[in-house]
Amino acid sequence: MSALAWIAVGSLTAWGWLLLGQGFFWRTDQRLPHREVPAHWPDVAVVVPARDEAEVLPLSLPTLLAQDYPGRAEIVFVDDGSGDGTGELALSLADRHRGLPLRLVSPGEPEPGWTGKLWALRHGIAAARERDPEFLLLTDADIAHAPDSLRELVAAARTNGLDLVSQMARLRVASGWERLVVPAFVYFFSQLYPFRRINGSGSRAAAAAGGCVLLRVEAAARAGVPDSIRHAVIDDVSLARAVRGTGGRIWLGLADRVDSVRPYPRLADLWRMVSRSAYAQLRHSPPLLMATVAGLALVYLVPPAALAAGLLTHDPAAAWAGAAAWAVMAGTYLPMLRYYRQPLPLALTLPFTAVLYLLMTVDSAVRHHQGRGAAWKGRTYAAPEVAGDA
C-alpha cells in the first residue's frame, strides 16, 4: 500500500477506537438520573455571577425567579463590576416578576490570582452560606431554566447521593455559524470528557458544565472551592475535579429544558468563546499543542483528504480507508445533530468545523505567548504559576 493509504488506515483505526473505546462519547442519552420526591426539600441558594449581561438578563433571570421549588430557595445575584446596569436591571426584574427572593452582591474587582467569575462566585457563595443552605445552584446569567429545573436537580442529587449534578445547557443554534460550530463544540467536549465515563461508578474522570451546576455545600467546603481553584480559566472542569478529588460523587449530562440564550451570530463571536480557554485546556503546553494539532489532523482531516487524493491518483486503498473513516466520523456526529434538531447532512461538514477549532486553538496559544492570555469581557488572564487542573 502507498504511504497515503497507510495514513488513512491509521485514521480509520483511530476512529474505531473512538467509536468503541472512548466511553461511547457520541451517545446523547446521559440525562438526569432517576429521581424520587424527597421527604424533605432542602434549602437552596441560586448563585448567579454576571458581568455586563443586560442584553440577555430579561430572557434568563425571570426563569429563575419563577422556579417552582417546594422548599426554601433564594437567588444571590453577583454583579461583577458591570458597566451596563446589570445589577440595577436584576433588581428591577426581581421586583417586576416577584417569585424567588433576590439579593444583590457587588464584590468589586478581583484580587490578584483570581479569575473574575470565581471571584464573583466566592462572594456569592459566602453570601449564600449566611443562611446555611444544603445546596448551591451555580448558574450563568445567560441560562434559562424550565420552571421545574431546580426541583429536578435537587431530586436527582438527593435520590442518587450526588455531591455535584451538572447539566450542559442546550446552546442557541439559530445563525448559520451557530449551526456549523455549536453542536460540534458539545460533540468535541463529550469526546474529551465522555459523560458515561464520568458518571460511572468508581470513575476518577471529572468534568462539569459551568452553566448549570448543583453543588452540595458540604462538598464545596470539603474541596475548598472556590478558593482552591481561584486561578482556573476552565472553572467548571476544575470544580468537578476538586469535588471528585475529595471523595465527592459527581454527574454530568445533557439538558432537556435548560437553555443558553446568548447569541453567537458571527464566527468572530464563536471564535472568542472557544479561543479564550482552548490553550488553557492544554495546560499552556507547546508539546501538547503540537500533539493536539497532529491528532486533529489525523482524525478529522485525513479522511476526506485521503478519499479525494485516492480517487484522483487511482489509489483504491487510500480512497476506501478515507471514505470508511469519514463515514464513522459522520455517524458518531449524527446523535448530537439530532439532539440539536439540525439537518443530518451537516455531519459531513465536521472536517471543516474541525479545521476551525484547530485554528482557534492555535490562535489561543499565539495570544497567550504574546502576553494577551485568556480574555473575556475586558479582562485578560495570564497562565498561573501553578496551573493545576485548570
Rank of each mutant, 00 (worst) to 15 (best):
A365W: 10
H369W: 13
H368P: 00
T349I: 10
L359Y: 11
L348V: 15
P343Q: 06
A365N: 09
L346I: 03
D363N: 11
L359V: 11
L358A: 14
T361S: 09
T361L: 12
Q370A: 11
P343L: 02
Y340G: 09
M360S: 06
L344F: 00
A365S: 11
L356R: 00
L348R: 06
L350N: 05
M360I: 00
L346W: 11
V366L: 10
H368S: 12
L346S: 04
L346Y: 12
L350F: 15
L350Q: 12
Y357K: 02
T361V: 09
V355S: 07
A365R: 08
L356K: 00
L359K: 06
P345Y: 01
A365T: 08
L356C: 07
T361H: 09
T349W: 14
L344R: 12
R367K: 15
Q370D: 12
A354P: 01
Y339G: 01
V355K: 02
A354T: 01
L359Q: 09
V355L: 15
M360T: 03
L356I: 12
D363M: 00
D363A: 13
Q342G: 01
V366A: 12
V366Q: 05
L337S: 06
A347T: 13
Y339P: 01
Y340R: 04
H369N: 06
R367Y: 03
L348Q: 02
H369P: 00
Y357G: 04
T361Q: 09
Y339Q: 03
P351H: 07
H368M: 01
V362D: 02
L348T: 07
A365Q: 08
M360N: 05
T361C: 01
A365G: 03
L358C: 14
V362S: 02
V362I: 13
P351S: 13
Y340H: 08
L346H: 07
Y357A: 03
V366C: 03
P351G: 12
Q370Y: 05
R338Y: 06
H368Q: 09
S364R: 07
T361R: 02
L356S: 04
Y339K: 04
M360V: 03
V355E: 03
H369D: 05
L348D: 01
S364G: 03
T361M: 10
A347I: 12
L356Y: 14
A354S: 13
L346C: 02
